[in-house]
Amino acid sequence: MKVPEWAYGVPPVTIVGQNYCTPHPLELIVKKKIKKLSSAQFEVFDLTGNLLLQVDGGVWNFQLKRVLRDPAGFPILTLRGKVLTLWHKWEAHASERTDGNNNALFTVKQSHPLQIKKEINIFLANNFKKKEPDFHITGAYTSLSFKVYEGRRLIAEVKHNFTLESFCKGKEKYRVKVYPEVDYAFIVALLVILDENDTP
Rank of each mutant, 00 (worst) to 15 (best):
1 M>Q: 08
2 K>N: 10
3 V>C: 11
3 V>W: 13
6 W>F: 15
7 A>N: 14
11 P>Y: 03
12 P>Y: 05
15 I>G: 06
16 V>H: 04
19 N>T: 10
21 C>F: 06
21 C>R: 12
27 E>Y: 13
27 E>I: 13
28 L>E: 02
29 I>W: 10
31 K>Y: 11
34 I>W: 09
37 L>P: 09
37 L>V: 14
41 Q>L: 10
41 Q>W: 08
42 F>D: 02
42 F>H: 07
47 L>R: 12
51 L>I: 14
55 V>F: 01
56 D>Y: 03
62 F>V: 14
62 F>M: 14
68 L>W: 00
68 L>A: 00
74 F>C: 11
77 L>F: 02
78 T>V: 03
78 T>D: 04
79 L>F: 02
80 R>F: 03
81 G>M: 00
82 K>A: 07
96 E>W: 02
100 G>N: 01
100 G>W: 04
103 N>C: 08
111 S>V: 07
113 P>Q: 09
114 L>G: 08
114 L>F: 15
115 Q>A: 09
115 Q>T: 09
118 K>Q: 12
118 K>I: 05
119 E>S: 13
122 I>C: 04
124 L>Y: 08
126 N>L: 10
126 N>T: 12
130 K>A: 13
131 K>H: 11
136 H>T: 04
136 H>E: 05
137 I>M: 06
147 K>S: 15
148 V>F: 08
149 Y>R: 02
151 G>Y: 07
153 R>M: 10
155 I>T: 03
158 V>G: 01
162 F>Y: 03
162 F>P: 00
167 F>S: 11
168 C>Q: 15
171 K>Y: 09
173 K>L: 15
173 K>P: 08
174 Y>S: 03
176 V>M: 01
176 V>T: 13
177 K>C: 08
177 K>M: 13
178 V>K: 11
181 E>D: 13
184 Y>N: 10
186 F>T: 08
187 I>E: 05
187 I>C: 04
187 I>A: 04
189 A>L: 00
192 V>C: 00
197 N>A: 09
